[in-house]
Amino acid sequence: MSWVQIARKDFADASRSMMLWILSALMILLVAGISSIPHLLHTPGQGPAPGFDEALSFLFTVVVTMISIIGLVVGYQAIVGERESGSIRFLLGLPNSRLDVIIGKVLGRAAVVAVPTVIGFVVGGIVIAILYDGFDVVTYVSLLAFSVLIGLVYVALAVGVSASVSTRAKAVAGVLGIYIVTDWLWWAVPMAIYWLLERELPGTTDLPTWYLFVERLGIWEPLAVISGTLVDIAGVETVPPADRLAGDVPFYLEPWFAWVFVAAWILVPLAIGYYRFNRTILS
């Protein structure tokens, strides 16, 4: 149970380092700033004034991308940083198991992302409520909850890598590599497999089931599906599998099953990290 102490210490460390406050300022700026752009671009008298929905769809992509990057930056040093500085000798000289260390680190760092996110959304929410008509609390809180989830997923990925490697440089390379491949470039993976099999590029409909399955293995795809069910704003929803598949939609492509993929994205990197960290020789 000592992971509670590790999480607390880690959070205290982050708040001492100003990181927490810099991130909070960044999140306020982000939420308030990005969501006010539609209002600023609108010329009064020309067309209808943008509402709450426009503000949020404008905000959505930027804020989730930023939080995913923040999650990776906050997480990648979590364990390897202590290995390099030598403070891990305190951590493991005290009665902490290596599993305690990983759990404590994930929760501590996830809180370092979550707290500024909440602060940013609260302050940004006031700005949005002033600038736009039709403020919907449920939608707004759902977007906040989704943002916190994103933070947790990317922190877990980064901590998993951090537990697996011996130097900060390797952690940066690992986190960046995984991020670029499984997040930004993942759409190309099913496409490439399709091309290898069929010698032609896939269309947008009549796709084989495996195509959507491979697509969903990426880190962002299942999160996008979940965001579509959580946040009811234009521009967030994804094309339903039924419209893209040749046959029936299997259970694992239904929206609820996206949670399983997301849970796997949290647990698998941590499990690999734990496996490797547990076998690490500290000498």
Binding site: D13, R16, E82, E84, S85, G86, S87, R89, F90
Partner: peptide, 9 residues
């Protein structure tokens, strides 16, 4: 421990 590092902050 030997060669430990502190939590600098």
């Amino acid at each position: 421990p030997e060669d430990f590092g502190m939590y600098e902050r």
